[in-house]
């Protein structure tokens, strides 16, 4: 019989408990607010991890999916008065569909060419949002998006309820992703990530694997967008520019590609670090950039990433075959 309370389970429970009681102990609204925006990034990082980490597709336009979710909820709420919980479904599934649409170029391309297509798509979405004034409000964005209610409890502008909403969402997502990781689909992704040609000869349907990766990644981004829009009450294209895509990618890579713990930790570090650097004001982003470089130099595989070793000729040590970490194929 399995032991019910192993050390790792105990550790996970302890971490959960800390996050659960955090708003009860630290009553500063500002801190909770920061944690809520960090939470949105955790959801985003978990979603991007599916595309980049599991399936190994470099996506440089993830903010487009985030934007899609946020605008889907905002538009359906403002024009059709659709409540938050229905909006969550609309955002999730709508963005999943949109993600799969974006994946179509992915079926023909690979590697860096695919990355540039996702990047281009991200820019196109942002410019469309900026210019289709009648629907998206142009550069000013959309105002007056409803906050959620839960059995009569109005969420309002305070951060507390959102904190717990995101808390529950992250737990559900982690549960779902853990299952997904070792499912048939998850293993197909891993095979595809390591070697597309080999995977396809072993019977992995590459088209299906790529489409589902974008679909599930899109679904998660859509949910994050919906929560973000409902929390903010107003959205504008500025919140979804290239820097957001890059930041989420940085979170996933920093934590360690393809690991759930990594995505969460990376998102926490990169969204909280600027807050800790607030004392330096002007030099804040300078130190932030420096910190990113240093963290990567010390742990290139990411905080929780695994290094796979392979014997190969290394240019670093002259004329010797040495054990070097293998570069991950994209």
């Amino acid at each position: 019989m399995k032991k019910l309370l192993t050390f790792s389970r105990f550790k996970n429970l302890a971490i959960l408990l800390v996050f659960f009681i955090f708003p009860l102990i630290d009553r500063s609204p500002y801190h909770i607010d920061v944690m809520v925006s960090a939470g949105v990034f955790i959801i985003l990082a978990l979603g991007l991890n599916v595309i980049v980490g599991y399936a190994g597709i470099l996506n440089l336009g993830y903010a487009a999916l985030f934007a899609c979710g946020a605008y889907l909820y905002a538009i359906s709420n403002i024009h059709f008065h659709i409540p938050f919980w229905t909006g969550l479904f609309i955002s999730g599934f709508g963005t999943a569909l949109f993600g799969m649409l974006l994946a179509f170029p992915a079926l023909r391309l690979s590697g860096d060419y695919l990355a540039i297509v996702t990047l281009g798509a991200g820019e196109i979405v942002r410019i469309i949002l900026n210019n289709v004034d009648q629907v998206t409000g142009g550069p000013n964005g959309l105002l007056g998006i409803d906050h959620p209610t839960f059995f009569g409890l109005r969420f309002g502008v305070k951060s507390g309820p959102y904190y717990y909403l995101i808390f529950v969402m992250v737990i559900l997502l982690v549960f779902f992703l853990k299952r997904l990781e070792s499912s048939r689909l998850g293993r197909a992704w891993t095979a595809m990530r390591e070697d597309e040609l080999a995977a396809s000869s072993m019977g992995v349907n590459l088209m299906w694997a790529k489409l589902t990766a974008f679909g599930i990644g899109g679904f998660i981004a859509g949910i994050a967008g919906c929560v973000f829009a409902s929390k903010q009450g107003s959205i504008s294209p500025d919140s979804f520019d290239f820097v957001v895509s890059v930041m989420v990618l940085a979170m996933v890579v920093l934590g360690g590609l393809g690991t759930i713990r990594g995505a969460i930790t990376g998102a926490l570090i990169l969204s909280l670090l600027p807050e800790f650097l607030r004392g330096f004001e002007m030099y804040r982003m300078l130190f932030f950039g420096l910190a990113m470089i240093l963290m990567m130099l010390f742990r290139p595989q990411g905080i929780f990433g695994e290094v796979r070793y392979k014997t190969r000729f290394s240019s670093g040590k002259k004329g010797r075959f040495s054990l070097t970490p293998e570069a991950r194929k994209q």
């Binding site: 980049v52 470099l58 890059v246 990618l249 940085a250 890579v253 920093l254 590609l257 030099y283 982003m285 300078l286 932030f288 950039g289 420096l290 910190a291 990113m292 470089i293 990567m296 130099l297 290139p300 595989q301 990411g302 990433g305 290394s314 240019s315 670093g316 070097t324 970490p325 570069a327 991950r328 194929k329 994209q330």
Partner: peptide, 22 residues
């Protein structure tokens, strides 16, 4: 990071961008 996973230099590149911009 020459022998590191492929995306690692991408992150340092982003770091350098932030550094130079600021």
């Amino acid at each position: 990071l020459r022998e590191a996973p492929r995306l690692a230099p991408l992150i340092t590149a982003i770091g350098v961008s932030f550094l130079l911009q600021n």
